[in-house]
Write a protein that binds this DNA or RNA. Structure first.
Lengths: 191, 191, 191, 191
DNA sequence: GATGAATGAGGGTTCATTCAT
DNA sequence: CATGAATGAACCCTCATTCAT
């Protein structure tokens, strides 16, 4: 009996994961505006199940990207502990961030849209990623390698925006432009 | 008689301008996806009048931004004729472009969306702005001031993206980030 | 002065004729449901002129076919005066009627539709064509060549219906079927 | 549990049937072009429910008439197996076909319209009914009772057209005219 | 908890008709 | 009289969300 309860809970969790995976995939293919129905079908569950796990589209979207944001935040912590220069650490983190953004390309759009269904996602980003990015920037500024006027939030928004892909502006263009942006974030040269 | 005909034509033109102004304002407030009905209401006309002037949403969107694109394109020509260094000319043009983008900030979104109703706008941009920007870049590359790998289209897309504003990422942030991007577009230093 | 009034009236009449011709042509090409705007354009007049001449679509449609109905009615009178057998006269008249119907193929539809905008047309047909057809039938019945139970109205409706063309059912099919129908209208054989 | 699921499925099926009945009734009263909204209201469901069951107008229209077409096709098979002369079999089948057409008289119109939303219905008819009718005609021709030039498609189109009812042209008129048409389809008499 | 049928507001677009000039 | 800009009801269809089972 205890087992069957456990089994039921496991099934519940499995549904939740299937939904997150399905939503992530669908967002990549069709954008964040994709119909809820499509996600339910892809996950192999009924549409009611979507709403049981995520009371509104907004919360589904948020949940989908929370995973990725968490991983991205923890990466910053790991990089800071490694034995590399702060500028290199930031570059590597940004590379990873960009890789995320251009792979699951819905995220860039999500960060930019005024859509109220994406508001909670921006809030989440504020909470998770800005501190992570700020810690890297602080280190770089302290080492004299980065422009001290740079703020984590603005940098992340800028990178997020640069990673909104489209016709004739693909993954490599975004990476190239982010690289150029980072060059412009270096500490100004004296003398 | 002639006068009253003229008066009517003037009224028609005023309606058209009112629609363009209303659409521009609504696009800023609600995004380019705003319902046509909202624009009609804002302009104080019936919905049929919108479709009389602009047979489809796509053409309305295009018309809203065409003015700005035209002015931007002609600015590039003027700057090339002035007696400033190519790098300065590009910087000035980009400043003006950014000013446009952040003022009527729907344009950035419009350039990025995959929505078919925005396709004609992207085409318009390609036709009008890319050659203008390319002429400035060419001059800068010829003068050894710009990275020769830079392409006009990618630069414009990047700038357009950087100018998609939002909560806590405003006009001055966008300008700052574009400045940094331009720094990263300079010719690499030898030696 | 009198002349210019006459000239103006002539222009009015010319507009009216142009509208009827345009409507007839458009109805053939696009069906009786064609937008009023299309007819106005084809006639080279403003849409207001259509409504000045024909206060509603219904009256325009009626007017378009009145011409043809008139001609058809007068044909019956002429045939009766010729020196042919009543059966032959009816056959010839039906041939001409069918030719009309399949050429201006909107008419068949118009006769059949429940659309209120076509009500007045059916009324017109009753007034114009039924007497014409009835006179031919009467002669045929009197000569013992036609089934006396045949009514003019039903026969015309039937012929009208048979002449509604469509994919894979063209002009020659309609003619063939009308011929067969007429065979079935002959006086029953005794014996 | 099983019972309540069954009950729900039964309700779904009842909705579907209600929609078909409502559509059939509305088509008779207002024609096949009747707004989907009217059908939804008549069936007592929301408009979304219509589209859930029938993804487009075309599929609703097709579904409404599919039943009748199926029954009509199977009737032809049964008649061929009975011990009656081919001419009698065709007459009986045509009687049944006409009965269908004049009862749900939208079908005649549907077969004739050029509207793309009715294309699938015509296709359906081609697939279902033409072979059925052709088998009867073939038998009649083989028995020397029918004009060998007769084609199933044209005959059915003609009968369909004759069954488009209207003011002063009712069910008995249509039946009478179809009878006369069939007389005209008999094998020509030899000298 | 899971299901998916039902809902209905809302979106883009068309077109008959009116009316000021 | 002629014009054609303006109107807005109506149409088809989509999709987020609810809720009975």
């Amino acid at each position: 009996m205890t087992e069957s309860i456990g089994a039921r809970q496991a099934q519940v969790e499995r549904n939740r994961e299937a939904l997150l995976a399905a939503a992530a995939a669908v967002f990549v293919e069709q954008g964040v505006q994709a119909p809820v129905r499509v996600i339910a079908d892809r996950a192999g569950v009924g549409i009611g199940t979507v709403y049981r796990h995520f009371p509104s589209r907004a919360e589904l979207v948020t949940a989908v990207y929370r995973h990725q944001l968490d991983e991205c935040a923890s990466l910053a912590r790991r990089l800071l502990e490694e034995d590399v220069s702060p500028a290199v650490a930031l570059t590597r983190w940004v590379d990873a961030f960009v890789e995320f953004l251009v792979t699951k390309h819905g995220l860039g759009v999500a960060l930019q849209s005024e859509d109220p269904s994406l508001l909670s996602l921006r809030t989440l980003m504020l909470d998770k990623l800005v501190p992570a990015c700020a810690s890297l920037i602080d280190a770089g500024v302290a080492a004299g390698q980065l422009d001290p006027r740079l703020t984590a939030y603005a940098l992340m928004r800028a990178i997020g925006n640069l990673c909104i892909l489209g016709a004739h502006y693909g993954r490599s263009d975004a990476k190239d432009m982010v690289d150029r942006l980072l060059i412009g974030c270096r500490a100004p040269q004296h003398g």
